[in-house]
Computed example of a mutant assay.
Amino acid sequence: MTGGVLVVGAGLLGTSAGLALRRAGVDVRLRDSKAEVLREAIGRGAGRAEEPGDPPAALAVVAVPPETAGDVVADVLTSGAAEYATDVASIKALPAARVRERMGSTGRYVGSHPMAGREISGPGAALADLFEGRPWVICPDEHTDQQAVTRALAVARMVGAAPVTMSITDHDDAVALVSHTPHLVAVLMAARLVDAPAHEIRLAGPGIADVTRVAAGDPALWTEILSANAPAIRDVLRNLRADLDRTLAALDAPDTAQAQLYQLMRSGVDGRARLPGKHGAARTDFVTVSVIVDDRPGQLARLFADIGAAGANVEDVRIDHSPGQPVGMVEIDVRPGTDQTLRAALTESGWRVP
């Protein structure tokens, strides 16, 4: 991209974008209010420090929290540091309103949001392939210059993402359903563990770990996100509360609850089936092959080498450690029809395959 990209905010998303853009041959300059964060991002190879004599960047990618994103975009554009700008905050109405308030026009700005992240933050958590195959939502409106959209789309494609265009309202409603409320539900479930007796916690397995995984996210950042998208999240929570009320009513009448509880379970199966599958394609039902693995160095490497030698493609993998035992269960998801061949090959190689 002629003119290069200015990344403002060298945290997880900003540094990951810098790493991916540098890999694509783009000149990336970095800016962060914290000198130590900037040094770490530069040390990771995400770009070079912005310098006073730099010409305007073709695009600024503003990767700061939602409450400050709009102000930073306005500062970057009015100072001449970049010709156009996008932000990657997970809410789009708040930054757009702030840019409009500060500049009177949002023409050189387009909001965007890569649907990618991790439970850990900072430049040390950044990955060059964080955006690979993930949706990157671009949210133009009737005032947006086409060049702003073109440059934001170019950046999304260069980092390996799959661009999607949505309105600001549709985006904020969508992330309330598929990101913000699920995070809040995970937090509420994880909070039940704080005062739980130790003997109950010891029984925890992969189910509770899966449900609460995202609860480890930065509390300060998520407080901002939930506050900024409160109206859309409230709508989802009200519907969830109605489902909880129906579930409680069913559990209060166990003699007649079977049909209602089954329908609830069935709706969960049907809803999860609508989630996109690998690389955004239609979801495929895979077959799980379980392998018992000793908890010692080199075992996973040997297992995956044997899986490769058997000609099987791993679609997903999960590891469950057995409490108090020096073994773990590795669950390998493969396409239907290949599982029996894989089981036979692994058994022949000496693995314990239940």
Score class of each variant (00 low, 15 high):
186 A>D: 04
157 R>Q: 14
200 E>N: 10
171 H>V: 11
116 A>H: 01
175 V>K: 04
142 E>D: 15
206 P>M: 08
156 A>N: 08
144 T>H: 00
211 V>F: 10
209 A>S: 15
203 L>S: 13
197 P>H: 10
121 S>A: 14
125 A>V: 01
147 Q>W: 03
146 Q>S: 13
112 S>L: 04
127 L>M: 14
131 F>Y: 15
157 R>K: 15
154 A>T: 12
164 V>S: 09
171 H>C: 11
144 T>I: 03
163 P>M: 12
194 V>N: 06
145 D>V: 00
201 I>K: 15
176 A>T: 07
212 T>Y: 09
174 A>G: 12
139 C>I: 13
192 R>E: 11
208 I>T: 10
163 P>L: 11
139 C>A: 15
212 T>H: 09
194 V>C: 06
179 S>L: 02
170 D>V: 02
186 A>Y: 06
115 M>Y: 08
213 R>Y: 07
172 D>A: 08
129 D>Q: 12
132 E>G: 13
121 S>I: 02
170 D>P: 02
132 E>W: 14
212 T>R: 10
140 P>Y: 00
184 L>Q: 02
194 V>Q: 08
210 D>Y: 07
187 V>A: 11
196 A>Q: 09
183 H>P: 01
194 V>G: 07
208 I>H: 07
149 V>L: 06
171 H>F: 08
195 D>W: 08
203 L>H: 10
184 L>A: 15
130 L>R: 02
173 D>N: 12
194 V>Y: 05
112 S>H: 06
160 G>D: 07
151 R>T: 00
160 G>Q: 03
146 Q>R: 14
172 D>T: 07
170 D>L: 11
204 A>P: 07
127 L>R: 15
201 I>A: 12
132 E>I: 09
207 G>C: 10
154 A>F: 03
171 H>S: 09
154 A>Q: 09
178 V>G: 07
202 R>V: 09
136 W>F: 13
176 A>R: 05
204 A>F: 07
141 D>Y: 01
163 P>Y: 07
138 I>M: 00
181 T>N: 06
189 M>S: 08
111 G>M: 03
181 T>F: 13
179 S>V: 03
164 V>L: 11
167 S>T: 15
142 E>A: 15
127 L>H: 09
186 A>Q: 06
132 E>H: 15
202 R>I: 08
150 T>N: 13
136 W>E: 02
159 V>C: 02
162 A>I: 10
205 G>E: 08
180 H>L: 05
124 G>V: 01
179 S>H: 03
119 E>N: 04
196 A>N: 06
209 A>G: 14
